[in-house]
């Protein structure tokens, strides 16, 4: 019991919360950016524009078939080679954005495809252009259907930020490792705290997603 009290002292718990703040910071940026990029890429892929769609589609397939760990390595060690020097946190945001954009793009593409059958023709017969039909008729329906899947992907994103420890990003998992690395007796309390903190964040995200889904359905 004393170990638990010492392990989760204000000092250590504060250090964990600092890590949590970084985790949330990375997550929020990556969620917003990958939602935007993923949607754009998914629509491009669906729209079957000559060459562009094929190339975009292929790049998406490459990225989403690689382990995120590899994308993190490539980003962190690759970007300085083209003259940029992002720190570990920024690298993590970029890597998460690249990876999650490809996942979201695929969700968006198949989401559009599943509602678009017939809808586009119908809308166009009323005189709408392809873009108008997509924007006013198909996308609103498609996104309504996709909400649970997209939220699920964002939950994965939050969990996956823990992989950024490999490039020593000072996020929640890494801060816990620092604490139990310096005092191995704290390992069980640290894991308990980690589980709880990640669960609270991810579960609330799922609950918000469900609410949103119910309201729109």
């Amino acid at each position: 019991m004393q170990t638990w009290i010492n392990a989760l002292s204000w000092l250590n718990f504060g250090f964990l919360l600092k890590g949590l703040a970084v985790t949330l910071f990375i997550s929020v940026f990556a969620i917003v950016l990958s939602f935007i990029f993923g949607s754009v890429l998914g629509i491009i892929r669906y729209a079957k524009i000559k060459f562009i769609s094929a190339i975009v589609g292929f790049l998406i397939d490459i990225v989403r078939n690689l382990p995120l760990l590899l994308i993190i390595f490539f980003t962190y060690f690759g970007l300085p080679n083209i003259g940029l020097r992002p720190g570990a946190i920024l690298s993590a945001i970029i890597a998460m954005t690249i990876f999650e954009s490809s996942m979201i793009a695929e969700i968006v593409r198949s989401g559009i495809q599943s509602v678009a059958v017939g809808q586009i023709e119908g809308a166009r017969s009323t005189g709408m252009t392809f873009v108008q039909a997509l924007w006013h008729v198909v996308l609103p329906q498609a996104y309504r259907h996709m909400i649970p899947t997209i939220i699920g992907q964002f939950v994965s994103l939050v969990k996956d930020t823990s992989l950024a420890t490999i490039i020593v990003v000072p996020e929640l998992m890494q801060h816990a490792q620092v604490i139990y690395g310096q005092n191995a007796n704290y390992i069980v309390p640290m894991f308990a705290a980690l589980t709880l903190l990640y669960f609270i964040v991810c579960f609330s995200l799922s609950v918000i997603g469900n609410r949103l889904n119910k309201r729109l359905a």
Binding site: V155, K159, F191, L194, Y198, F199, C202, S206
Partner: peptide, 11 residues
């Protein structure tokens, strides 16, 4: 399902 879907694999 809820527990294992909402904590990182690494943990």
């Amino acid at each position: 399902v809820e527990i294992f879907r909402n904590i990182p694999l690494l943990i």
